[in-house]
């Protein structure tokens, strides 16, 4: 008898399968053409970054000098030409994607994680905790992000890891503020009180009820943050505080090419195009995501 009943309950759960809300969002996202375009471009860039190690030998193709072939224009042999040391710019730009994406993603994820906890605690508990935490965030926010990153990199020394730290720190206040504001709007709903009434702990309430309902702006912010970190990293490298030579980071390629811009403009063109394409694709995708996550668009 009880076995029969077991079978019956399994059937009921299977029979009325739940429609996933995520599937809904994905559907709306795919309806947005520019978002799909952005996504496709960005996926290509990710694939390139991941396969850079297989396509090129770092020692041979990316950093090895070849003075005989310096400053050659684009040709069938060197698609993007060569730089002042004779290195293939195509290889360097493609390899550069690796650095940009690594820094962009790690820094965004770190600041998302820290900002999430800080913002959620400040928003949920309110009172003096909120005051103290958010004033500290305001102090961080008052310093322009790039300036803050310059200060951190200057004091820690320039390396990929220090860049990630610098970018993470300057991204935290933005995330904390967004999380806090969405926690504040969600927190006053009766279902939060209901969760407390059935005996949920603060942690369950924050992570099970508050955050899932306030996630949308956060996901969008994270996507756009990747773009802005890539851009800032390029900016820092351009200033000579980013990824140290001879690593082929896009910003570093640009700085390097700057002195030759009059006679060999292609040297600037390709890294610049790479940065632009990446940022554009991420922004298109982020905007599409924002629209798809907005329930009013249903």
């Amino acid at each position: 008898m009880s076995e029969n009943k077991n079978v019956a309950t399994v059937d009921v759960a299977k029979k009325y399968k739940k429609k996933s809300q995520t599937a809904d969002i994905v559907k709306r996202l795919f309806r947005n053409k520019s978002a799909v375009l952005g996504m496709i471009i960005f996926l290509c860039i990710i694939v390139i970054a991941l396969s850079a190690d297989f396509l090129f030998d770092y020692e041979q193709d990316v950093i090895k000098q070849d003075i005989m072939n310096r400053l050659q224009g684009p040709s069938s042999e060197h698609w993007f030409g060569t730089d002042e040391m004779g290195r293939d710019i195509f290889a360097r730009v493609l390899y550069g994607a690796k650095y940009s994406l690594k820094i962009g993603f790690s820094a965004s994820i770190v600041s998302l994680a820290i900002g999430l906890v800080i913002g959620a605690v400040a928003g949920y508990y309110g009172g003096w905790i909120d005051m103290v935490v958010m004033r500290i965030m305001d102090v961080l926010l008052a310093i322009p992000g790039t300036l803050l990153a310059i200060a951190i990199v200057a004091s820690l020394g320039s390396s990929v890891n220090n860049l990630i730290i610098a970018m993470s720190v300057s991204g935290i206040p933005g995330f904390a503020r967004i999380v806090r504001s969405s926690v504040l709007t969600v927190k006053d709903n009766e279902y939060i009180e209901a969760a407390r009434a059935i005996g949920a702990t603060d942690r369950t309430i924050i992570f099970g009820h508050v955050l899932p309902n306030g996630m949308a702006p956060l996901i969008v912010q994270a996507t756009l943050r990747v773009a802005s970190v890539i851009l800032s990293t390029a900016g820092l490298s351009f200033l000579g505080l980013g990824v140290p030579a001879p690593h082929p980071e896009w910003g570093a390629l640009l700085t390097n090419a700057r002195s030759y811009i009059r006679d060999y403009s292609y040297m600037c063109l390709f890294p610049g195009l790479a940065i632009m394409t990446t940022i554009l694709s991420l922004n298109l995708f982020g905007d599409g995501l924002r629209d798809a996550l907005d329930p009013k668009q249903k």
Partner: peptide
């Protein structure tokens, strides 16, 4: 103790988690 004391809310639209 909450196992023994429960509450039913006024507004069925805001008292259920939409997710």
């Amino acid at each position: 103790k909450r196992k023994e004391m429960q509450i039913i809310f006024q507004d069925p639209f805001s008292s259920l988690n939409p997710r």
